[in-house]
Simulated scan of single mutants.
Amino acid sequence: MQEQLLNLAKQRRSIYALGRNVSASDDELSTLIKDNIKWAPTSFNNQTTRAVILFGNSHEQLWDIVGKRLKSEVPTEEAYQKTLEKINGFKSAYGTVMFFTDMDIVHRFENDFALYADNFFDWSEQAQGSAQFSVWTALAENGLGANLQHYNPLIDDEVRAAFNIPDNWKLRAQLDFGSIEAPAGQKEFMADSDRFKVFN
């Protein structure tokens, strides 16, 4: 059996020690990210996934927004400082991809295909997973690390204002990426017998 995709998937890990020692240009990275999202599958080919790619000051601005927003959510100053340390780790990365779902498209397909209306948001989430996995794996293939964060919906309003995001785009995840400064830990798996069934 060919295992090229599997081997690439094994490279895609949650890397938290990220830096800015990146040789690819912003244009090259943007093209890689956009192409992987474009080729990821979506139900009915409805292409609900949207992305905002942040580099430089814009990347740092996002994580400043997260840090400021979480101050009102964390109960103590000590806990906030620990949270801020974590956020600053994301800020130390090279860039971030913000993933969105275009809810206008979701609602249009709900109306146009009423028989399947209850499924279209779930299917858009599956499309998100496909796009995020594809981008993350492509970055890993090119020697870059990443980790996926979900500070939505806490930051939605601030992000919308800061980056001129359309109201119909729903924020789903933030993928920060950069050079790998320390490897991921050992990955553990549950028993196959608890996870899979195979019938012949």
Rank of each mutant, 00 (worst) to 15 (best):
V159D: 01
D157C: 03
V106R: 00
K71A: 11
G143P: 11
H107K: 13
K82L: 10
R160G: 11
G95H: 02
W123V: 12
D102C: 01
F90E: 02
G143R: 07
V74I: 15
T96A: 07
G89P: 13
K71D: 04
V66I: 13
G145E: 10
L139I: 10
S134Y: 02
F109T: 02
N111E: 13
G129Q: 04
F120E: 06
T96E: 08
N119G: 13
K82T: 07
D118Y: 09
D64F: 00
F99N: 02
T101F: 02
V135F: 01
G95S: 03
A146I: 12
Q126S: 09
I87T: 00
D112S: 15
E125R: 11
L144D: 00
D157W: 03
Q126E: 05
V52H: 01
Q126P: 08
F163W: 04
F90R: 04
I155P: 09
F99A: 01
A140C: 08
A51G: 08
G143F: 00
I53W: 00
G89F: 01
G95P: 14
I53P: 02
F55R: 03
L154Q: 12
D102L: 03
D122N: 15
V97L: 08
H150T: 03
Y80S: 05
F120Y: 11
T96D: 06
N111W: 04
E77S: 14
A138G: 08
L139D: 11
A93T: 06
T76Q: 03
F90M: 09
W123H: 05
V74G: 11
E60M: 06
N164T: 11
N57I: 14
V135H: 01
S134H: 10
F121T: 09
K86M: 14
D156M: 05
E73R: 15
E158S: 14
G67F: 01
N164E: 12
S124E: 02
T83Q: 14
G143Q: 02
D157M: 04
Q126A: 07
G129E: 06
D102M: 00
F163I: 00
E158R: 08
G67D: 05
F121R: 05
M98P: 12
I65M: 13
T83L: 04
